[in-house]
Simulated scan of single mutants.
Amino acid sequence: MANSLLSKMGTLRLGPAAIYIHPVRTTTSKHWDPKFKKLRAQKYMKFELPDYNEDISAMSPERIRQKMKERGVLPPRQWMERPFYISATGGVFEPYVPPEGDGKASIVSTTRAKQTVELLEKKSKSMMAIRKIKSYEEDFESKEFPQLAQKIYIAAHESLVNGDKKALREYVTEKAYPEFRHNSHQKTLRWRFLESLEPPRIVHARCTDVVSKENIFGQVTVRFHTRQQLAVYDRFGRLIHGSEILAKDVLEYVVFEKHLSNMYGTWRIHDKIIPDWAPPKEPSKLTQWKPEPEPVPEAKVEETPAIADK
């Protein structure tokens, strides 16, 4: 009997211990902390889902109106309204026509005398426009405005050279902004304002209303005769226009605009008038003329003598 017990105990020691685990599964949905049970239940709202397959064409107008009121939907309108904001005009109204030879003709010449007479004839409209500008802007002075315009002109070009888009929007209008930024992508600009050869002066002023009689814009054209330096480099650092050493005399007619009806409006650069008699722009230094290809001579085909039939 002892042998049988030892044999049984030996088999138990030598065999692996078997552990039987019974998984416990529960179907309860209780939260472990029932403290905020009521508040958690209030987080869910029961509402009726809309039937997207319902036939609207079969409903009466009263039923459709009732459905839209239940869902909080406004009735559709027969027209489309889109709000828009006008902070600048789309162009120059009654643009200034620069006299031919301005900046070159001498004061004593007959050409300059004729130009002076023409300017006096057109000066009455400008004076009326300046008077209207003063009715909206009491601090406006014809003698002090050209100096302010020159500061705006310099600040706008410096922000363009520095690549400051946010500052550039403060000095140019929405019309002039894409014209300023045109063809300046991936280019390095070097610009310097050296001096004024002649003091800037107002040569033209106009006022007009847009959409309504109360919405008035004012435009003032200022003549600049300055000396500047400009150099433009491409993305590879090659000089494509101008020079950082040579200075040039620049004669420009810059239009400044302000939304007079807006109490927070400011004077900004709007456009630049280029006269017809102005010399053409210099081409890029990297511009090359591609000659036409030379005609290729036709290859001569050697004719083989025909073999006589025997």
Results as ranks from 00 to 15, higher is better:
residue 187 K to N: 01
residue 194 L to N: 07
residue 205 A to N: 03
residue 237 G to Y: 01
residue 219 Q to D: 07
residue 230 L to M: 11
residue 211 V to G: 02
residue 179 E to G: 03
residue 219 Q to I: 05
residue 196 S to F: 04
residue 214 E to T: 10
residue 237 G to S: 02
residue 225 H to S: 05
residue 216 I to N: 04
residue 173 T to C: 06
residue 178 P to Y: 05
residue 180 F to G: 04
residue 195 E to A: 07
residue 212 S to R: 05
residue 182 H to R: 11
residue 178 P to Q: 04
residue 239 L to Y: 10
residue 211 V to Y: 15
residue 220 V to I: 12
residue 194 L to E: 14
residue 188 T to N: 05
residue 171 Y to P: 00
residue 200 P to F: 05
residue 229 Q to K: 09
residue 219 Q to R: 09
residue 244 E to F: 06
residue 241 H to K: 12
residue 187 K to Y: 01
residue 226 T to I: 07
residue 220 V to Y: 04
residue 193 F to P: 00
residue 202 I to E: 06
residue 226 T to W: 04
residue 174 E to Y: 11
residue 188 T to H: 06
residue 199 P to Q: 14
residue 229 Q to A: 08
residue 217 F to W: 04
residue 181 R to E: 13
residue 201 R to N: 09
residue 173 T to Y: 14
residue 184 S to H: 13
residue 243 S to G: 13
residue 242 G to E: 13
residue 214 E to D: 14
residue 232 V to E: 14
residue 173 T to M: 12
residue 208 T to S: 09
residue 176 A to M: 06
residue 235 R to I: 03
residue 178 P to G: 09
residue 189 L to R: 09
residue 222 V to N: 14
residue 181 R to Y: 03
residue 235 R to N: 13
residue 202 I to Y: 08
residue 219 Q to A: 14
residue 200 P to L: 11
residue 183 N to C: 02
residue 172 V to G: 09
residue 242 G to V: 10
residue 203 V to K: 03
residue 179 E to S: 08
residue 206 R to M: 15
residue 231 A to W: 06
residue 218 G to E: 03
residue 171 Y to F: 13
residue 188 T to D: 09
residue 177 Y to A: 11
residue 180 F to K: 07
residue 222 V to K: 07
residue 204 H to C: 04
residue 207 C to Q: 04
residue 216 I to M: 12
residue 203 V to N: 02
residue 242 G to N: 06
residue 204 H to R: 05
residue 199 P to I: 06
residue 196 S to K: 12
residue 236 F to Q: 15
residue 218 G to P: 03
residue 173 T to D: 07
residue 219 Q to H: 07
residue 184 S to T: 13
residue 244 E to S: 08
residue 225 H to P: 00
residue 238 R to C: 02
residue 212 S to A: 14
residue 213 K to L: 14
residue 206 R to N: 04
residue 233 Y to P: 01
residue 173 T to K: 13
residue 237 G to M: 01
residue 237 G to A: 01
residue 223 R to C: 10
residue 224 F to E: 07
residue 191 W to R: 10
residue 188 T to M: 03
residue 234 D to I: 00
residue 223 R to W: 14
residue 226 T to R: 12
residue 241 H to V: 03
residue 218 G to L: 02
residue 226 T to A: 07
residue 237 G to H: 01
residue 193 F to E: 01
residue 227 R to K: 15
residue 234 D to E: 01
residue 205 A to L: 05
residue 212 S to Q: 13
residue 228 Q to S: 08
residue 181 R to N: 09
residue 229 Q to D: 06
residue 172 V to H: 09
residue 198 E to K: 10
residue 217 F to C: 03
residue 198 E to G: 02
residue 180 F to L: 07
residue 226 T to Y: 01
residue 209 D to N: 14
residue 234 D to G: 01
residue 223 R to F: 13
residue 213 K to Q: 14
residue 198 E to L: 15
residue 201 R to T: 12
residue 219 Q to S: 11
residue 234 D to V: 00
residue 235 R to P: 00
residue 203 V to C: 08
residue 242 G to R: 06
residue 228 Q to V: 06
residue 203 V to D: 02
residue 213 K to S: 11
residue 215 N to G: 00
residue 239 L to Q: 08
residue 238 R to W: 02
residue 225 H to N: 15
residue 182 H to D: 14
residue 217 F to K: 03
residue 231 A to I: 09
residue 236 F to D: 09
residue 242 G to M: 07
residue 225 H to W: 08
residue 219 Q to C: 04
residue 196 S to C: 08
residue 178 P to H: 04
residue 236 F to N: 08
residue 193 F to H: 12
residue 200 P to H: 12
residue 243 S to Q: 13
residue 227 R to F: 02
residue 216 I to L: 06
